[in-house]
Design a protein around this nucleic acid. Structure first.
Length: 660
RNA sequence: GUCCCCGUAGCUCAGAAGGAUAGAGCGUUCGCCUCCUAAGCGAAAGGCCACAGGUUCGAUUCCUGUCGGGGACGCCA
């Protein structure tokens, strides 16, 4: 797809080629290397380039003189007459003014590309694995997870539009202490609820405050949702063996007798598996409400050889990678080396086998940016792998699958983990080189890119929503979506998605529940959706009057400065998408949409009294309808990239606005 | 202590591969519905882009340091 920007860049590139022929420049400029900006001031033309600043040195000239020459060169190359004026400004800017045919060609681009307008190939087919959310299946998603989820989903959409081959993945942490703890918590509830009849169970579940079962673990999951999950499990299946009065959670022998497949760990019991599956279903449902789906759900159990994807033989990838790292001396048995300035652990001297396996992140051979302050434990003293070890195997697996690039979206509290993980990839590359792997270069720290998402601060009418000790943990994503949903179906999803995308990832976000359901400019969702609906209703009104807009309409009648400005805005859209994809910044799309709508509302209001879209002048009306249709398409495309709906009509939401 | 992120209008935040007179919303003040959605528009006021050096034709943007705010440094995940 060629865009207006690309066409102008091509002209400037061709002008540079001509300059080479004339001996003005040593070598031409590639099309994609031509900088092109929309100037802030109308007096600076429609497009501006600072190309001549960059070329002045090579041309052994000064920017201004070079720009003077470019003025002539560009005119010479511009056979189609797209540029109506080129002038030098300031110390060497080249300001371009487009002819009507020039800027109006952007509208033809939209008509031609339709829903595909905005797409590009800047990603060049790079294969990217985008991992996000990956919330532990030990409870419902909270607001912070939601932000990562929305960002990841929108980023996948934006990057795909820009020509990256993106796959999305959710890593299920279904192994380890936390999951075991979940199983234990649910198990206690199972035993409590099982002897009760249905009515009694229901009553027990709504008790206020919730009464925990006897013997409930101190560090168990205390939420009501645990009891609810247990109740659901009782309906789903039979758990007779868990009701044996002799059973205790800690008694592995007892469990081994009842569950043949049981491997002797709390995270591998049938109850535990059923419990995290329940939680995962709930997470999937929450994500579905936000219209988020993943290409792959990656189970940590696969890495430990507990299961395998699609029925293959289970492989203990974690154990294997630990061993290989040890062989290459990237891992060793011992006590963690003391961090500088800290007293060494005066621990008991166990025998070597009982010592943990440590990753040598502090190695001199580790490049500085990845070097850790401390060697981290991979295998505990009792041989159980840490989360870190599993994550090493996981990222090894990712790269083995052939992706060019990995993107992980993590909560900002994980940032200490980033360089460590990159260091791991570096070590794996080194390891594979030593093993003679021809593809070893694939494993490198800079294949991994981590986006850290900052916290969401929940407000209600400007005041912080009181939460538990750990902020964010206690308000679920679902509750927020529900609270923000008004009479318009899907409005909660649209609000949450759009507002989450109005900040760049690394900026803290205030989410005001009150504002999110408002229908004014406080709430940008409605502003943009209203803009789209308004454009739609103009087309409807025109059709009612027999003014059906026909493709191929002549556009010459678009003479207003406002119309030219809208045209240039439309022309910029593919640039914005490409920039958002390259910089992993979907929020740029949100800002673009707000700006586009602002421009349109202004146009609409300024001319509504005298020079409206639908007039008696048929040619003018047709041209304006073409413009309206193009703008509507662009806004719809932008909203689609954010996963927000573009309504054709907006009904009154007044009854939804009243509160408490 | 080590490391990371952030300091832009009264408030919440955009912007910057180094470029021309730094933007938006909210809030404040003043206007605009006989009319395709006023869920809107127009105008005014509001800034030493935290501070100090450096790099250069040019720095709010890049580098270093200082100050201020937040966060990470588990045999948790």
């Amino acid at each position: 797809m060629t865009t207006l920007y690309q066409r102008i860049r091509t002209l400037l590139s061709q002008a540079s080629t001509l300059a080479v022929e004339r001996g003005v420049l040593p070598e031409p400029v590639a099309v994609d290397d031509v900088p092109l900006d929309r100037p802030r001031q109308a007096s600076h033309g429609d497009l501006a380039t600072n190309l001549c600043f960059q070329l002045a040195k090579a041309a052994k000239s000064n920017p201004r003189a070079l720009a003077e020459q470019f003025v002539a060169l560009v005119k010479e190359v511009d056979h189609e007459g797209w540029i109506s004026a080129a002038e030098v400004a300031g110390p060497g800017f080249l300001n371009l003014r487009l002819s009507p045919a020039g800027w109006q060609s952007a509208l033809d681009d939209v008509r031609r590309e339709s829903t595909g307008y905005g797409q590009s190939e800047v990603g060049a087919g790079q294969r990217v694995l985008l991992e996000f959310v990956s919330a532990n299946p030990t409870g419902p998603m909270h607001v912070g997870h939601g932000r990562g989820a929305v960002l990841g989903d929108a980023l996948a959409r934006v990057m795909r539009a820009a020509g990256y081959r993106v796959e999305t993945e959710y890593y299920i942490n279904n192994v380890g202490n936390q999951v075991s703890k979940l199983g234990e918590s649910v198990w206690h509830w199972l035993r409590t609820l099982a002897p009760l009849n249905e009515a009694e169970r229901a009553e027990r579940l709504v008790e206020e405050p919730l009464r925990l079962p006897e013997g409930f673990p101190e560090d168990g999951y205390r939420g009501r949702y645990i009891a609810e999950a247990a109740a659901e499990l009782l309906v789903d299946g039979t758990w007779d063996h868990a009701l044996d009065p002799a059973a205790t959670w800690a008694d592995d022998t007892w469990w081994a007798q009842r569950e043949p497949a049981f491997l002797g760990r709390g995270d591998d019991r049938a109850v535990t598996k059923a419990a995290w599956r329940k939680m995962l279903q709930r997470i999937q449902a929450d994500l579905a409400v936000l219209d988020i789906r993943f290409d792959r759900w990656f189970s940590e159990r696969w890495l430990h050889g507990l299961e395998s994807p699609e029925g293959g033989l289970p492989v203990d990838a974690v154990g294997a990678v630990c061993q290989r790292l040890q062989m290459a001396d990237w891992a060793y048995r011992g006590e963690p080396a003391a961090v500088e300035g800290e007293a060494p652990d005066a621990d008991e001297e166990g025998d070597k086998a009982a010592q943990p396996l440590l990753f040598r992140g502090t190695s001199e051979e580790m490049p500085k940016p990845f070097r850790d302050g401390k060697d981290r434990v991979m295998l505990r003293g009792d041989g159980r792998p840490t989360y870190f070890a599993a994550d090493i195997a996981y990222h090894d697996d990712k790269l083995a699958r052939g992706y060019d690039h990995l993107v992980n979206i993590l909560g900002a509290d994980h940032h200490g983990y980033v360089s460590r993980l990159k260091g791991v990839l570096h070590a794996l590359g080194d390891l594979r080189r030593k093993e003679g792997d021809a593809l070893a270069d694939r494993w490198s720290g800079d294949r991994l890119e981590v986006l850290l998402v900052q916290m969401v601060a929940l407000l209600r009418d400007g005041k912080p929503v009181p939460m538990g000790k750990r902020s964010g943990e206690f308000v679920t994503l679902r509750e927020v979506v529900d609270e923000v949903t008004t009479a318009e179906p899907g409005s909660g999803r649209d609000s949450v998605r759009f507002i989450f995308l109005t900040r760049k990832a690394d900026a803290q976000l205030d989410f005001d529940l009150e504002v999110a359901r408002r229908t004014t400019m406080d709430n940008p969702v409605y502003y943009v959706q209203y803009g789209h609906a308004r454009l739609a209703s103009i087309l409807v009104r025109a059709a009612e009057g027999g003014q059906t807009y026909a493709p191929g309409t002549a556009l010459d009648a678009l003479q207003l400065d406002d119309e030219r400005e809208l045209g240039m805005l439309i022309a910029e859209f593919p640039e914005v998408v490409a920039r958002a994809a390259r910089g992993r910044e979907p929020h740029l799309i949100a800002y673009y949409l707000m700006e586009a709508c602002r421009a349109f509302h202004g146009y609409y209001s300024r001319h509504k009294a005298d020079d409206r879209v639908i007039t008696d002048d048929r040619a003018k009306t047709q041209a304006r309808l073409a413009m309206v249709a193009a703008l509507k398409q662009v806004i719809a495309n932008g909203l689609a990239l954010l996963g927000v709906t573009a309504p054709e009509r907006m009904v009154s939401l007044q009854e939804g606005v009243t509160e408490e």
